[in-house]
C-alpha cells in the first residue's frame, strides 16, 4: 500500500555540521519522485532521513517533521526499526548478503526477523519478488547459488527484490543505476515504472535524462558553497522542471551551467 510523505522544516545534522536545512516537500503516493542536484548537496542525506537510516551514523540527528499518512516518523514513541520495515531502501552499490544464496537474499527481511513461514509461502514470495524485480527468468534455475555471483545489474535487481519482498509502503533508491551499464539501467527504469503501481518511489539520480524519463515530480537540491548546508531549491512536476523551471539555479543546473 503506497503512502504519502509530508516533510516540513527538516534540518539534518552530522554532529554539529548542518548538512541539509529547511526542506519542505510532499511526496505523492503511487508516483516516482526524483531528487537531483550536484554532489554533496545532501540528496543522500535527505533520502536516508526519510526512513531513519540517517541516525545509524554516530552523532547524526534530525530536526523537523516527517509525516507519513498522519504519523510523525520522528515521534517519541516511534521505533526506527518499524519505520524501516515500512520504508525500504536500495543503495548506490549493490549489496547482496555474501553469505546467502539468491533465494535467501530475497527472503532475508523475513528470515533475519525470524518470521515463521511455510516452505510453499516462501517459495511463492521469492518467485513473486523476483518477478517483480524482473530477475526471475535469469535466476530461476540457480536460486541456491550465492547472490554475489550475479552481474552488477542483476545484483541490484536482487537488492530491489529483497527490498520489495518485505512489502514496504515506500521505496527509497539512492542512485541505484550509477554503478550499472546502460542496459541494466534501462531494465531498472522499466522496473521502477512497474513498481510505482504499488509503491511510493523516491529516487536520487545524477542522470537528468533518467529523472526526466521516469519521474512525475522532481526536486532540485543545491548548496551555496562547500561547508554550507544543502537546500531544496525547487520542487515541481518533472515537465515543468525540465522545460520552464521557476528558479534560475535550476535552469542553470539542468542546462549544465553552474558553479
Amino acid at each position: 500500500m503506497a503512502k504519502r510523505i509530508e516533510v516540513s522544516d527538516l534540518n539534518i545534522y552530522y554532529g554539529n555540521f548542518r548538512a541539509v536545512e529547511g526542506v519542505n516537500i510532499s511526496i505523492e503516493p503511487r508516483s516516482i519522485t526524483a531528487l537531483i542536484g550536484p554532489s554533496g548537496c545532501g540528496k543522500s542525506t535527505f533520502l536516508r532521513s526519510l526512513n531513519r537510516m540517517h541516525e545509524v551514523l554516530p552523532g547524526a540527528r534530525v530536526e523537523g517533521k516527517v509525516v507519513m499518512d498522519g504519523q510523525d516518523l520522528y515521534g517519541a514513541d516511534v521505533d526506527p526499526v518499524d519505520v524501516r520495515r515500512q520504508i525500504g531502501m536500495v543503495f548506490q552499490r549493490p549489496n547482496p548478503f555474501p553469505t546467502m544464496s539468491i533465494y535467501d537474499n530475497v527472503i532475508a527481511g523475513n528470515r533475519l526477523n525470524n518470521k515463521r513461514m511455510k516452505k510453499s509461502e516462501t517459495d511463492d514470495l521469492v518467485e513473486k519478488s523476483l518477478m517483480g524485480a524482473n530477475l526471475w527468468n535469469e535466476v530461476k534455475d540457480r536460486l541456491d547459488r550465492p547472490g554475489s555471483g550475479l552481474s552488477g545489474g542483476q545484483q541490484q535487481r536482487l537488492c530491489i527484490a529483497r527490498a520489495i519482498a518485505v512489502e514496504p509502503d515506500v521505496l527509497l533508491m539512492d542512485e541505484p543505476c550509477s554503478a550499472l551499464d546502460p542496459i541494466s539501467t534501462l531494465a531498472i527504469e522499466d522496473l521502477m515504472t512497474e513498481l510505482k503501481e504499488r509503491f511510493t518511489i523516491v529516487i536520487v539520480t545524477h542522470n537528468m535524462q533518467q529523472a526526466a524519463r521516469v519521474s512525475e515530480s522532481t526536486g532540485f537540491f543545491n548548496l551555496n558553497g562547500v561547508g554550507q548546508p544543502g537546500r531544496l531549491i525547487e520542487f515541481n512536476p518533472t515537465e515543468k522542471i525540465f522545460s520552464n523551471p521557476d528558479e534560475k539555479a535550476t535552469e542553470d543546473y539542468i542546462s549544465g551551467r553552474f558553479g
Binding site: R93, C159, A163
Partner: peptide
C-alpha cells in the same frame, strides 16, 4: 562492509 549492516537495517532488522 558497513553496507551489509545498512542493508540489514533497511530491511527493518
Amino acid at each position: 562492509p558497513n553496507e551489509l549492516r545498512e542493508a540489514s537495517y533497511a530491511l527493518g532488522v
